[in-house]
């Protein structure tokens, strides 16, 4: 499904990614691990098309991945460090809009279920949410729409213990439903519970 081959990226002569190559299959989860500054987020950004690699290729379903391609946007749900929101749309408005925009069947039911699952205040505007709640909204925006590939940058961040358990369970279910998951993490428990393979950045 997702093929990354020979990916290289450097900033001002400092190599961050060197010849990264891997393949991600449907229903599989791959964890990108490594210390801070190793290039985990850069790898995810290159895969998502936010960063242009110096060399190498990222392909989705056999075609070069172009971030602005509607087909890519329909297949790929991302939670990276550039998450953004409409300041004047509430939590439930965001989720409803995303669901309609991606043609989710049974929008009210799906939105209500995700809201309950993530314990989000439906009527609040994003600017009034805590950083943890905002992170949950980012996760919710990925889960409220159809997806075949999940890209998550340290999804366990800002989640409490119960939240991390829920996340492990949810990602396991995502795999079971055929969704491919590529995520970075510093949480060994989450990696052990979800990842089928690990890549060192």
């Amino acid at each position: 499904m997702l093929t990354v081959s020979g990916l290289c990226k450097s900033y001002a002569g400092l190599a961050v990614l060197t010849d990264v190559t891997f393949t991600l299959f449907p229903g599989e989860a791959v964890a990108v691990v490594g210390p801070n500054g190793a290039g985990k987020t850069t790898l995810l950004k290159c895969v998502a098309g936010l960063e242009e690699p110096d060399s190498g290729l990222v392909e989705l379903d056999g075609a070069p991945l172009r971030e602005s391609d509607p087909a890519v946007r329909a297949a790929m749900a991302c939670l990276l460090d550039d998450a953004d929101y409409f300041p004047d749309l509430s939590v439930v408005d965001h989720l409803t809009l995303y669901a309609h925009a991606h043609g989710t069947p049974d929008v009210p039911g799906t939105v209500a279920s995700v809201l309950q699952e993530l314990d989000l205040p439906a009527d609040q505007l994003p600017v009034t949410l805590s950083s943890g709640q905002r992170h949950r909204l980012g996760l919710a925006s990925c889960l409220v729409r159809p997806r075949r590939l999940l890209l998550l940058d340290e999804p366990e961040q800002r989640l409490d213990h119960a939240g991390r358990s829920w996340l492990a369970d949810r990602l396991t279910k995502e795999k079971a439903s055929g969704t491919a998951v590529l995520f970075t993490s510093h949480d060994p428990d989450l990696i052990a519970a979800v990842a089928d393979r690990q890549i060192s950045a």
Partner: peptide, 25 residues
């Protein structure tokens, strides 16, 4: 300016978002 307005509003009633993708937007 938008963020300040949003902060002063805090909570809002759900908007009537439905229809096709284009009309929902």
């Amino acid at each position: 300016v938008l963020e300040r307005r949003a902060r002063s509003l805090g909570r809002v009633r759900p908007a009537a978002i439905h229809g096709t993708r284009f009309t929902a937007l």
